[in-house]
Simulated scan of single mutants.
Amino acid sequence: MSDFLESAKNFVNSAVSRTSWEAQKQLKVRSKQTEIDKLVDQRRQLMDELGQVAMNLYQQGALTDSQLSRLCASIFELDHDLRTRETQMQDIKNEAYPADQLGPAPTMNYAPPISGPSQVPPQPINASYQPQQNQPPQIRCPQCGNTVRPGSAFCRSCGAKVQ
């Protein structure tokens, strides 16, 4: 019986020792992860600051690196697109439901189906029909000649000011 108790005591001591070691290990891992997270955060802050400096130089016309200029132009264009979409979203949010519109609008050019068997053969659908779309004219960059999206202030390819 004493061998059993001694064996159980050793087993429990071993389990407690292992649990304590695992807890210490987890504390070390968490401590190291906190250090890593702080370093990553500092790096992100420095990258943000670097980006801000590059954007300021770009706005002043003092950024000479073409690759950075291209990236800044893309950021500028995205900022412009973002502001446009935010304005559009706000307009949609501000839309009011028309009180006089209680149901769907009447359908134009609607003819009820002919009752009974049809004597007129169905007309074939013209598959080549393409509705005319009013597409804005393409704008070309004055510096590199690449196509620029309408409303863009800067070329995404070379960073040149378009407007």
Score class of each variant (00 low, 15 high):
K25H: 06
D79S: 14
Q101D: 04
Q138K: 10
P113Q: 07
N94D: 08
I125V: 15
Q45N: 11
P117G: 06
M1W: 08
D91M: 08
E35H: 00
I92K: 06
Q138E: 08
S66C: 01
N146R: 10
V53R: 13
L63W: 06
P121S: 07
Q33K: 05
R156A: 13
T19I: 04
P106C: 02
R85L: 00
L82N: 11
F154A: 15
I114N: 14
Y110H: 15
C72L: 06
L82W: 08
A105S: 12
S20V: 02
R18M: 02
T64S: 09
R156C: 11
N134F: 09
M1P: 12
V29Q: 00
S128H: 10
V12I: 11
R140W: 03
E22I: 03
V16M: 03
I114Y: 08
Q88R: 00
D37A: 09
D81P: 03
G51Y: 07
Q133A: 15
A15Q: 11
S2F: 09
Q138H: 00
P117I: 07
V120Y: 01
A160R: 02
S128C: 04
V53H: 11
R43M: 09
K28D: 06
N10T: 07
L63Q: 09
D41E: 14
S7I: 03
Q52N: 11
E49I: 13
N134W: 04
I125K: 14
Y110I: 12
W21C: 09
A73T: 09
A23L: 00
N94K: 02
R149G: 00
N13T: 03
Q90V: 01
Q143D: 11
G116T: 07
D41T: 12
Q52V: 03
Q132D: 14
G103A: 12
M89V: 04
G159S: 10
Q90H: 04
A111V: 15
Q60K: 13
Q45R: 10
E77A: 13
P113S: 09
P117R: 06
L57D: 11
Q26M: 04
Q45P: 05
H80K: 12
L46S: 03
R18S: 07
T87P: 02
S115I: 15
I125Y: 13
Q130F: 08
R85I: 04
K32L: 01
N56C: 08
V120T: 13
C144D: 06
S118E: 14
V162Q: 05
R85A: 01
R140L: 13
L27P: 03
T107C: 10
C72Q: 14
Q67L: 12
P136L: 15
V53L: 08
P136S: 09
Q42L: 10
A105K: 13
R18W: 02
M108A: 09
D37Q: 00
S157F: 11
Q59E: 13
D37T: 02
C144E: 06
K25N: 07
Q123M: 09
I92R: 06
L50T: 12
G103T: 06
V53Y: 09
P142T: 00
S152A: 15
S66H: 14
A96K: 08
Q59D: 12
I114G: 10
P122W: 05
A153T: 11
P113D: 08
